[in-house]
Amino acid sequence: EEVKDCRYESVTSQLFKKQNEEITSQLSVFQERLIAFAKEHNNDLKQNPDLKIKFLRMCSRIGIDPITLFDRQRHLFDVNDFYYEICLKVIEICRITKDLNGGIISFEELLEGFPTAKIAMEDLEKSVDMLQTLNGGFDIILIKGKKCLRSVPTELTSDQTKILEVCSVLGYASASLLRVNLGWTQYRSNAILEEMVAIGLLWIDEQAVGETLFWDPAWIHHSDIGI
């Protein structure tokens, strides 16, 4: 974040000596044109490696995510570069969000990590499959049929999985929800809920009416949280 800011500043002061809001809009126009240029002159760039490198480094410097230079029909360089870029981003997202979500992230959240590029679920799945060859401890797990990526060494117990399944409905679990849905005693529910807080899989919400709620951080990105 810091590095990006510095670069952004130096570019702004060199390229345009105007004010910030203007620049932001101009930069985005500029970025769009560069992206369009890249796609249009795909073959020319491919044939001229030096130009290609300079061009891509310039893009990177003014904050264009390389992945926006690709689409599924037209590729710069290797056909698979698109997927390699996704691999890279998946690793970054997992590392950055580990402390927020305890190291478990759904494929849907991963997709949201690519706001500037249109990538499909199948692209993501293909890339995650490619990543397996690195044996990075990135395991695919299923929560109520939904694919998630686990990037930390601790495996989920079946009780923990059941709680995440309950969470997938409303975003949270609580002792009373677990009693109704799984028939668990208060003792057992509290033991497992707190264990999941301990390993960073759930966040506590003490301001709900009636009882403490335990939220799945996967719901951080849900805008339609119903209390």
Partner: peptide, 17 residues
Amino acid sequence: YALYNKSMRIGTGLVSP
């Protein structure tokens, strides 16, 4: 994979896993 590609391969095409 992430560090190398990000630091060294921008502009030259990423390597695959």
